[in-house]
């Protein structure tokens, strides 16, 4: 699934032009008269975004696989916490987990940190070197295996090869 484009920078520019054009179309609700101004701002926004952030390698296949996974798990996350909040016995058993991250520092790691907080029962609290501290709403059901599965998906999205699998273990503290 390595879809290496011919010119990464040309692909990035084309993609960002398309994204900002889409954004303009959405914001103006498709008024045809707005495009003379829109073209200018799309070009300016693309130039600014290139100046502010370097091209990120990402995989379209990884993205297509990630979206349904993310929607399904955020649905489960919402249902899970709503049920726990409303059950009379308040079935929670919170605690902290420590997870050894295999993703390198950078955007992939930031992305994973954000997504963890939207998954069922987990909330990322702190990163110290390669350890991610995760608060679990229920230690009995939140597992390191879920975090490892998420990490694999994020790695596929950002086209990162994870070091085979030795340090998948996560110790609870």
């Amino acid at each position: 699934m390595r879809l290496q484009g011919p010119l990464p920078i040309a692909r990035t520019v084309a993609l960002r032009l398309a994204l900002f054009s889409l954004l303009w179309w959405v914001l103006t609700e498709g008024q045809p008269g707005s495009w003379s101004l829109g073209a200018l701002f799309v070009a300016l926004a693309t130039a600014l975004s290139l100046a502010l952030s370097r091209p990120v390698p990402w995989s379209a296949v990884g993205f297509i696989r990630f979206v349904p996974f993310f929607l399904w798990w955020s649905l489960r996350g919402g249902v899970d916490v709503a049920w726990r909040a409303c059950a009379p016995s308040l079935p929670i058993a919170p605690g902290m987990l420590t997870y050894r991250l295999r993703l390198p520092p950078g955007r992939a790691r930031v992305f994973m940190t954000a997504v963890i907080s939207l998954l069922p029962g987990t909330l990322s609290a702190e990163i110290v070197r390669n350890s991610l501290f995760v608060h679990a709403l229920d230690q009995r059901t939140s597992s390191e295996a879920d975090l490892a599965a998420l990490e694999m998906k994020v790695a596929a999205l950002f086209r990162i090869g994870l070091s085979t699998q030795p340090s998948t273990r996560a110790e609870t503290s």
């Binding site: 955020s74 649905l75 996350g77 919402g78 249902v79 899970d80 916490v81 709503a82 049920w83 726990r84 909040a85 409303c86 308040l90 929670i92 919170p94 907080s117 939207l118 069922p120 029962g121 909330l123 609290a125 608060h135 709403l137």
Partner: peptide, 30 residues
């Protein structure tokens, strides 16, 4: 209903971390 459940969680959960769980997940789904 999910917004309401998130608010119930905010009131019933015991500490800042568990309350964050209720707010982010239930409200995003709502």
């Amino acid at each position: 209903v999910f917004f309401l459940a998130g608010t119930v969680g905010l009131l019933r959960f015991p500490d800042v971390y568990t309350r964050l769980h209720a707010l982010t997940k239930a409200d995003n789904l709502g």
